[in-house]
């Protein structure tokens, strides 16, 4: 598109998505605080709390894509939005910021909490690189789901991608565990970053950037938007 972005309207659309997602957000914020409050109760409660927290982040991510992108098409509110003075690129930018900001804040909170828990508890700090790689994977999954949602706008395909990406969490931990350079430091008292762990992290960030760039490129090239 040859015009510059319609910033005021993008802002309004972002606020609109935040506002429409408020109940969803409240649900996941409440759930996350509850999960957090479970963590310090004991050993099995720790694992339950952590699992619940992860589920909250994954759930929020997927729920947001479904409710703000897929449902907009499915429930036919997209023609209403596209009748406003925006271009498809404006629309994609608004969706990007609205979704990513809603996801990024809880994601960052969890990343910081995780690092904090490892640093200040007897759990070996050697697990920090693994945790950061896994947290980044959650971010990557979210970006991929978002990109697929923006490009295909089909519920079935998006759900398929969500399922596949969530299924890959287990294998990813397994693969990381089998990389000697990474797994040999799990039990060490300090975190160790070497070429293997940094490489995986960089790959994740490359894929995150790539998914966003591709989504925007295809969005701008769409010949039929509705």
């Amino acid at each position: 598109m040859s015009h510059s972005l319609n910033i005021p309207l993008i802002k309004i659309l972002i606020q609109k998505d935040w506002y429409l997602s408020r109940k969803l957000l409240a649900l996941y914020v409440g759930g996350s605080i509850f999960a957090l409050s479970f963590i310090s109760l004991g050993e099995w409660q720790f694992f339950m709390g952590v699992t619940l927290l992860m589920s909250m982040v994954i759930g929020l991510a997927n729920h947001l894509v479904t409710s703000t992108i897929i449902n907009e098409r499915k429930e036919q509110t997209l023609p209403f939005i596209m009748s406003l003075p925006i271009s498809p690129t404006d629309y994609a930018v608004a969706k990007l910021i609205a979704n990513k900001s809603l996801f990024f804040i809880p994601w960052l909170a969890i990343l910081i909490t995780t690092i904090g828990v490892f640093t200040f508890t007897p759990i070996p700090d050697g697990l920090i690189p693994l945790s950061i790689i896994m947290c980044s994977y959650l971010l990557l999954s979210y970006c991929l789901v978002w990109a697929v949602g923006m490009i295909v706008e089909t519920e079935g395909i998006v759900i398929l991608v969500m399922v596949v990406l969530n299924c890959l969490i287990g294998p990813l931990i397994y693969i990381l565990g089998s990389i000697q350079d990474i797994s040999s430091h799990f039990q060490s008292a300090t975190q160790v970053w070497n070429s293997a762990s940094i490489g995986v992290l960089l790959l994740e960030f490359f894929l995150i950037i790539a998914s966003l760039v591709i989504a925007f490129y295809l969005q701008a090239r769409k010949k039929t938007f509705l």
Binding site: H3, E75, T77, I86, S87
Partner: peptide, 20 residues
């Protein structure tokens, strides 16, 4: 569609498949 943002400032559009 290049200048759709400017054009749509002054177009009111409704279709029967449009939902709020």
């Amino acid at each position: 569609p290049e200048q759709q943002v400017l054009a749509k400032q002054n177009i009111g559009f409704a279709s029967d498949d449009m939902r709020l």
